[in-house]
Computed example of a mutant assay.
Amino acid sequence: MTPYYPSRRTFLMTTLGLAAARTLQATPYQSLTAGQVIDRIKTNVGIPWREQTVDRLIAGTPELPVKGITSTMMATLDVLQRSAARGLNMVITHEPTYYSHQDRTEPIEQDSLYQLKRDFIQQHGMAVFHFHDHWHGRRPDGIATGMIRELGWEKNADPQNPRLFTFPETSLARFAQGMATKLNIKTMRVIGNPQMPVKRALASWGNVSLMPGIPYLAQADVLIVGETHEWELVEYVQDAIASGQKKALIIMGHLVSEQAGMKYCTEWLKTFIPEVPIEFMPAAEPYWRPDQPAK
């Protein structure tokens, strides 16, 4: 049999192919990083990124490889533990991780609970991104969009004022109960006559101070908020009722008043981050009623 001697061209191509294969084997897979996720958020949120903002990486590094993402209203220790158990090592949270709006840790550096939470994040190789200002700044507001959708109020919204809603007339008690049922709220508080007719409601998700609370209340029968100072807006509404005005205030609780907005954020993130699983993880409502003890 005549021995086979490859041509110079065949030999060269084979050699190059083997070299390329070795290079591919030697090069580790380049996974999605926390920094890349944040860059995509900045690109897709639809508004310029602010210089002054609380929206930043609170824990972890931009180089951290992302295995999965949690979208949540609040990065509580419970949410972090559940995320780690599911292999989701990047948490995108609307509210702070370390108990202040700016996530300042200097005042609590010696606190044992802060240290436990910080160490848990580090030990499990996690990243936490605070996503507040730009999710609200998006048009339409991401939190408001999710809340309106969860309540089924799309057709009730005023085209000129996304906070204002008009409904067929019903009692305050029935209106509040409908909200509590749709959002599974255990500890909603209501100020006003339960039989008061409600047609117009104005919702301001999250925290609402005395101003703009007063002008908000003037536009509707009932003002809906997440939370407010009881010695300010609550007192004002009580005095308005005592003066003869037919007004009401619904206090949902901060967490439940914005939670569906981060559920919507989960769907939004999936439109431009296809590489890893993304899950919505609701934070637990912190309160319970004495007649309905927490389980």
Rank of each mutant, 00 (worst) to 15 (best):
I191G: 00
L223Y: 08
K270P: 05
L32Y: 01
T97C: 13
L269Y: 07
T181G: 01
R22E: 11
T170E: 14
S71D: 09
T14E: 12
Y4Q: 07
P28D: 06
E109C: 00
G244P: 08
A173N: 08
S100Q: 11
P215R: 05
K263N: 14
K247N: 05
E230W: 02
P159V: 10
P293T: 08
W135F: 10
Q238T: 13
T187N: 14
R8P: 01
N193W: 00
M211L: 09
Q292R: 15
N156Q: 15
S83K: 05
T2R: 11
Y4C: 00
A59Y: 00
R104W: 14
A284V: 14
W268H: 06
P140T: 11
M147P: 01
I214E: 12
P215E: 04
R22T: 13
L116N: 07
D119N: 15
D141G: 14
F129Y: 15
D239C: 01
W205C: 02
E227Y: 03
A144N: 13
T166K: 10
I38D: 03
E169K: 11
A26P: 01
K295P: 15
K199V: 03
G35Q: 10
T93C: 11
Q81R: 14
T27V: 12
A21S: 06
I121E: 11
A19F: 13
P65Q: 14
M126R: 10
I148Q: 08
A180D: 08
G206T: 03
R149V: 00
K67G: 03
W205S: 03
S31A: 15
L233T: 04
D239L: 10
L249F: 07
A144H: 11
I278Q: 05
S112H: 10
D133L: 06
T14I: 09
